[in-house]
């Protein structure tokens, strides 16, 4: 008789192995994830004499989500290439979607302290409306889905963790250095502003900055930003599930 399998167990396995047990052994990992968004936040705060604090807090929340995806890519590459975990999981009843979902959430575990502190700072300093909070959360979730799907997809193609570091560097430039996440896009002079629009994170930042009143955004521009964010998330999600190299060709 076939064994009754628990989807919750399969989901929970990734969270345990990739974050909870890892954090128990290496607590420094949480400190590292905590510091990443704050280091830029502090720089922006001092350079802008505090005027960009609110936008930088919102940017920090978005970047925490994006960083999760970049970390996922490195972690999965490491597990796949150095421990052959992906091959072991492929030859088991856990499918690619469940593995991706569990591993993605495991990355979020590392981000919990940063998210909590940034959320408290947002409550104290940004005075967002309920609608703006909803928009902020929706954009954060979209960026999380986008970046983790992208991270998973890339990780299945890497053959070495060194290769994954190269991808991390490229993605980091596109998703965190290029877009004006911690400051308004108007701070970027033309024509360089167009370069920023190559990054999906720019559209996410515009939506948040528009919702929080930091940027004047027409309804049309806001709608266009949403279309880009949703479309790119769906496309990358589809690519991750359908085109990842789960069973190798």
């Amino acid at each position: 008789m076939a064994m009754k399998r628990s989807g919750i167990s399969q989901f929970w396995a990734s969270i345990l192995a990739n974050s909870i047990y890892a954090l128990g052994n290496y607590p420094a990992m949480m400190v590292s994830m905590f510091l990443t968004p704050f280091s830029i936040l502090v720089v922006i705060f001092f350079v802008s004499h505090g005027t960009l604090l609110t936008v930088a807090i919102e940017g920090g929340l978005i970047m925490t989500m994006i960083t999760s995806g970049m970390s996922l890519q490195t972690d999965l590459s490491h597990l796949k290439n150095d421990f052959k975990l992906q091959d072991m999981v492929v030859a088991s009843p856990t499918g690619a979607g469940m593995y991706l979902f569990g591993m993605a959430i495991s990355e979020l575990v590392y981000s919990i302290p940063a998210i909590v502190v940034l959320a408290v700072l947002a409550i104290l300093f940004t005075h967002l409306t309920a609608l703006a909070w909803l928009i902020l959360i929706a954009v954060m979730l979209a960026m999380f889905a986008f970046s983790t799907c992208l991270g998973f997809f890339i990780s299945t193609f890497t053959s070495d963790v060194m290769e994954s570091w190269a991808y991390t560097s490229i993605i980091s430039t596109i998703l965190s250095a290029l877009p004006p996440v911690y400051y308004p896009i108007t701070y970027i002079p033309m024509p360089f502003r167009y370069v920023a629009y190559l990054s999906p994170a720019t559209y996410a930042a515009e939506i948040i900055q528009g919702a929080s009143g930091f940027l004047e955004l027409s309804s049309l521009s806001a709608a266009a930003d949403w279309i880009v964010v949703i479309a790119i998330t769906i496309i990358i999600g589809f690519v991750a599930v359908k085109k990842s190299r789960w069973r190798e060709e």
Binding site: R5, S6, W12, L16, Y21, Y26, F83, L85, P93
Partner: peptide
């Protein structure tokens, strides 16, 4: 293949069995 460095054998075997859908 290697048991994941940061896990104990108990944690590794337990996680693998969860991946296979055990309670």
């Amino acid at each position: 293949a290697r048991a994941i460095n940061w896990l104990t054998p108990r944690q590794f075997i337990f996680s693998y069995l969860l991946w296979r859908g055990y309670g």
